[in-house]
Design a protein around this nucleic acid. Sequence first.
DNA 1: TTTATTTGTTAGATGAATCTAACTTTGTAG
DNA 2: CTACAAAGTTAGATTCATCTAACAAATAAA
Lengths: 216, 216
Amino acid sequence: MVSYTEENYLKSLFLLSQGSGEVGVNELSQHLGIKMPTVNSMMKKLREKKLVVYEAYKPLKLTARGKKEAGLIVRKHRLTEMFLVDIMGFTWDKVHEIAEQIEHIASPEFFDRMDSMLGHPTVDPHGSPIPDKNGNLVWKQYRSLLEVTAGETVKLCAVINSSDEFLRFLNARNLQLGTKIKVVSVESFDQSMRVSYTGHSDEMLSKIVCEKLLVE
Amino acid sequence: MVSYTEENYLKSLFLLSQGSGEVGVNELSQHLGIKMPTVNSMMKKLREKKLVVYEAYKPLKLTARGKKEAGLIVRKHRLTEMFLVDIMGFTWDKVHEIAEQIEHIASPEFFDRMDSMLGHPTVDPHGSPIPDKNGNLVWKQYRSLLEVTAGETVKLCAVINSSDEFLRFLNARNLQLGTKIKVVSVESFDQSMRVSYTGHSDEMLSKIVCEKLLVE
DNA sequence: TTTATTTGTTAGATGAATCTAACTTTGTAG
DNA sequence: CTACAAAGTTAGATTCATCTAACAAATAAA
């Protein structure tokens, strides 16, 4: 049995591991908003449960089992976000908090139902991939908008940070997944970009914004 | 702030109060499957929070605030059951457990959305009324099938016990809300009833079953 | 009305998840 | 290569929800 709290630790560890594969206690502590000693003892507990590989002063790693558990939670989270948008009519900036709670519901049928009502989606409303039924996750290799050169036209496929604030920033500029963006020019000084897309022929995006937009 | 656990106490108290209005610690303890001393201390806590009227050795009562809080949780539970059946295609015997978890989700918009998708339903899939947005609940005054005399035809409007087992018993006999039931004869010895309805011209129902079927 | 049963309360222990304060290891900047 | 900062650990306290054991009150039965 994995508790609500333990699920949150696994999920964070899973998400933080996406790049490097190894995560520090401090990093995890920050991400969860929980103090290091608490994280420390939880890691010992999760080690006992064979969900995490933990040795003092070494970086943290999920075991295969831990990875699967965590992947399935992320699956539930992302399916829920998709459900909230596609079936219930929420906008993409309102779904995170709700999904954060629903991801802990214990009922495979409930999520299977969502999955089939949605037609087995592979990405959530922010373009993040939905892990499969074994908890496996693969990111398509998108480029960040930052890597695109002037003149190119690309399609917005995902956003990295899905905080309400950032999403509302995008809403305000009518930027949504699927939008075809043409990079008009790049300011080499601060890496801000002048872009154009349907309905917006001249929009400025800062480096901070560009690096969070994944395109292909 | 009312915790997940506290919500469950309030809800049970609310449901048990429906008839009498007053509930004993023992009764509540049984209903929640939690030992009396635990219930006892929780009552003291809920008294501090002005949700329950509690005095040693006196029966328990919800305050107006407590009644509202509890009513809103029941509202969330029943809206969820309705949503699971009408929107997600679950059968009425599969929804209780899931609703038991979803009722604790903190998101008014989520339940408002359900409510409007369902067209503001007034009863759940078992015929129990859904409290309004202020947590107020009124039961229509149905009769139990037990009170119906031979020869009468009535409509099944609600079931009292919504355990999986009982609901599957009804499924197996094709008895659902709305079914028009004709009472053919009543066995005065054990109060079992011979009834007929569409597709079932001769079905026997025990007293135990009849008293749980609410009709009009 | 005395006694027995049921119901309710108090006291004290436990486990989960959290914290702060103090200490230790690791790794990096002089 | 020391020394200092950052990261990690240990120890011990706190809060919440739960339990068992023992005691007290209320109620029902004899």
